[in-house]
Design a protein around this nucleic acid. Structure first.
Length: 423
RNA sequence: GUGGGUGUAGCUCAAUUGGUUAGAGCACUGGGUUGUGGCCCCAGAGGCUGGCGGUUCGAGUCCGCUCACUCACCCCA
């Protein structure tokens, strides 16, 4: 019989590694809320056209990577490939502008893209997503990147760098695009087949081609920075000045391109060289026209997403850490003690003590062995003999000390002893 | 979607040029004089060698197909 397996590229997160996720999520919430972000939770499924319109019809995401399918009425639905579009949609739908304090949002959860999986890239992956609406000030751009760096630093992530660029706006980008297209047209012969295709679809992409021939062909190509309009240039200058004031190191990367159509002006990525082919741990940028394009007010926006799988892969390059061990193990000898012990275990848990038990009993030796493997700090040894005496020994596994505790007050006595307030 | 690599016990891996009953370490279970863990010793359990088909007296090993995983391209978090 064929075994049922998880869908390709969709992974179980097993107990042994869940603590990494908890650490990342908890830290993210702390940092984001300190900076004034409020959590928002949107559905995992949206209408297809939301993403088609926001991300861009000719992007790879929309063209070939979306999980889309018709529902029973024939409406096309899509498992969200990213969060920004959904958050913008929710903002418009609920007219959240009415509450001016609620302009910063964050969102943590799964995204879906139908790509061939590889290291650090999966079909269901998870992002921490932050979005700010209504503010165009370059200070905000800097703050968003500063916050992203604070978060990574707080987690102790090593080996990452912040790259920034400006993509210009609707005023200046067309001129640059035209100049670049013309430049590439002259050198079409020298480009690899991929780039020859790119120069029509998304000429900016030619810049990050890895083929040596293409890199050479790009010598003397027009640079986007030189085509920025005065407003965009000024904005970008101020963003950089502000980052310097904040002491956030960054690297200008005039060739950085982002995969979504809606980005303009500031774009940024946190990159690493420690994850094989996947170098982006997080990325984002400004998207001032998006809200209006989706039928909302003409409000500017900026945001970023962090890939949690990639982040955790980086964290794991440090040492792995065990989950929390039980504090107390109750070993029992005899049926009467087993019944008493079982009840006591539940009462201990009710009062918040992480307690483990051998349901099947077994020899005391095997129970001690198991307690040791679990890494518990204390073991209560409860036999029928102890029940008769009304006292039972608690063993400190590290020091081998055993003290007798009264069974009529077992709960309180154990709590004190295990938590270390009694010796 | 395109290419490469790999599939043997829960995990990491063995198994002469095709040749008996597919092994080891770790992990797991039990025991080492009646009720005390780690180290050590002994024992046990655990596999249709990913699946299907072919070649052969004989296939974990060779061939074909398929599936899965993995890395890379494309692209992205």
């Amino acid at each position: 019989m064929e075994r049922i397996q998880a869908i390709k590229g969709m992974n179980d997160i097993l107990p042994a590694e869940v603590h990494w996720w908890q650490t990342v999520e908890t830290t993210a919430r702390e940092v984001l809320e300190t900076f004034g972000y409020k959590e928002i939770r949107t559905p995992l499924v949206e209408k297809l056209e939301l993403f088609a319109r926001s991300i861009g019809e000719s992007t790879d995401i929309v063209e070939k990577e979306m999980y889309s399918f018709p529902d029973r009425k024939g409406h096309w639905l899509t498992l969200r490939p990213e969060a920004t579009a959904s958050v913008v949609r929710a903002y418009i739908q609920h007219n959240l502008r009415a509450d001016p304090l609620l302009q910063k949002f964050y969102c943590i959860g799964p995204m879906f893209r139908h790509e061939r999986p590889q290291k650090g890239r999966y079909r269901q992956f998870h992002q921490i997503d932050a979005e700010v609406f209504g503010i165009q000030d370059p200070m905000l751009d800097a703050e968003v990147m500063y916050m992203l760096c604070c978060f990574l630093e707080k987690l102790g992530v090593q080996g990452v760098g912040l790259h920034i660029n400006s993509l210009g706006c609707r005023e200046c980008r067309p001129a640059f695009r035209q100049a670049l297209t013309a430049f590439l047209g002259d050198r079409a012969e020298e480009l690899c087949p991929d780039c020859d295709r790119r120069r029509h679809v998304n000429p900016l992409r030619v810049f990050d081609c890895k083929v040596e021939r293409c890199r050479k062909a790009l010598d003397g190509a027009p640079e986007l920075v030189d085509y920025l309009c005065p407003d965009c240039r000024d904005h970008f200058q101020k963003v950089q000045a502000c980052l310097r004031d904040l002491g956030t190191p960054f690297q200008l990367d005039p060739h950085m391109v982002r995969g979504l159509d809606y980005y303009m002006r500031t774009t940024f990525e946190v990159v690493t060289d420690r994850l094989g082919a996947q170098n982006a741990v997080g990325g984002g940028g400004r998207y001032d026209g998006l809200m209006k394009d989706l039928g909302g007010p003409d409000l500017p926006g900026i945001g970023f997403a962090i890939g949690m799988e990639r982040l955790i892969l980086l964290l794991q390059q440090g040492q792995s850490r065990a989950g929390r061990a039980p504090e107390l193990f109750v070993a029992v000898i005899g049926d009467r003690a087993a019944r008493e012990g079982f009840g006591l275990v539940q009462r201990l848990r009710n009062s918040g003590i992480r307690t483990e038990f051998t349901y099947g009993g077994g020899s005391l030796k095997s129970q001690m062995r198991r307690a040791d493997k679990l890494g518990v700090s204390h073991v209560l040894i409860l036999g029928d003999e102890e029940l008769d005496r009304g006292k039972a020994p608690v063993r400190n596994m590290a020091t081998k000390e055993q003290v007798e505790i009264p069974l009529d007050d077992a709960l309180a006595a154990l709590t004190r002893y295990v938590r270390g307030h009694d010796h």
